[in-house]
Computed example of a mutant assay.
Amino acid sequence: MPNGPSDPARRHLTMPKEGPLLAQGPVVVELEDGTTVASDRFCVALCMCRRSATFPWCDTSHRNRPREH
Rank of each mutant, 00 (worst) to 15 (best):
M1A: 11
N3C: 08
G4D: 05
S6R: 01
D7W: 00
D7C: 00
P8N: 06
P8H: 02
A9R: 00
A9H: 00
R11L: 05
R11E: 01
H12R: 14
H12F: 08
H12K: 13
T14I: 04
T14H: 15
M15K: 09
M15E: 13
M15I: 15
P16M: 06
K17L: 13
K17W: 07
K17N: 09
G19Q: 06
G19M: 01
L21S: 04
L21M: 11
L21C: 02
L22P: 09
L22E: 09
L22M: 13
A23H: 05
A23S: 07
A23D: 09
Q24H: 12
Q24G: 11
G25K: 07
G25L: 10
V28M: 09
V28H: 10
V28W: 11
V29K: 06
E30Q: 10
E30N: 03
L31K: 14
E32G: 12
D33I: 03
D33K: 05
D33T: 06
G34Q: 03
G34N: 12
T36Q: 13
V37E: 11
S39M: 09
D40K: 09
R41K: 13
F42G: 11
C43N: 11
A45G: 09
L46P: 02
C47T: 06
M48H: 10
M48P: 04
C49P: 07
R50I: 15
R50S: 08
R50C: 06
R51F: 03
R51G: 13
R51N: 10
S52L: 08
S52M: 09
S52Y: 05
T54A: 13
F55Q: 05
F55W: 14
P56K: 03
P56S: 07
P56W: 07
P56N: 06
P56T: 14
P56E: 07
P56M: 05
W57V: 01
C58I: 03
D59N: 03
T60F: 08
S61T: 08
S61G: 12
H62D: 05
H62L: 04
R63C: 07
R63M: 06
N64I: 12
N64W: 11
N64R: 14
N64P: 01
N64K: 15
R65C: 00
R65K: 15
P66K: 10
P66T: 04
P66I: 01
R67D: 13
R67M: 12
R67I: 02
R67W: 14
E68K: 14
H69W: 15
